[in-house]
Design a protein around this nucleic acid. Sequence first.
DNA 1: TATTTGATTCTT
DNA 2: AGAATCAAATAT
Length: 172
Amino acid sequence: MKLARPFFEQKTLTVARELLGCFLIRRLGRGMMRAQIIETEAYGGLKDKASHAHRGRTKRNEVMFGSAGRAYVYLIYGKYYCFNVVTEKKSSPAAVLVRGVKIDGQKIIGPGRVCRALSINAGLNNLDLLNHHELWLERGALVRPKIKKMPRVGIDYAEEYKNKLWRFLLAD
DNA sequence: TATTTGATTCTT
DNA sequence: AGAATCAAATAT
């Protein structure tokens, strides 16, 4: 079942937790890929010094200021793409980064690797995941999975926000 | 206009 | 431990 708007409008930490076990579906021509989300990170609001939205609206991050349920895709280090899902109401810029998935039983760890595996690039930035036939999200199992919390990766500059346990993983 | 940077990954 | 690589953010 496709995830709907109210799901994405929840608090970012809630969405980050509840996306674990859900499926990211990618359709490419005749082919279809089904990726189970196994690792996420929350990037919340204007205060979070690790968030792209921390210093206000820019060309890159403007999607985070839009409606929940859209894709925020950006290029990092000139080489890799990162895929995020926008959360919360329009006035509250926030997103959840998908850091790891499982496709056909194979773990793909790292946001750049996830995008490479699913052919996600900047052309998909700002697409509405609720109303799209090439990329969308579906609910996982109804039972609550066991979840691990950890500090986020690659944000040493984020001062008092760098040790927040806003990284979530499915416990194996 | 010029310089720096980065929610990473791969090679040495 | 260091390099790759570039669009966008920040500094000038």
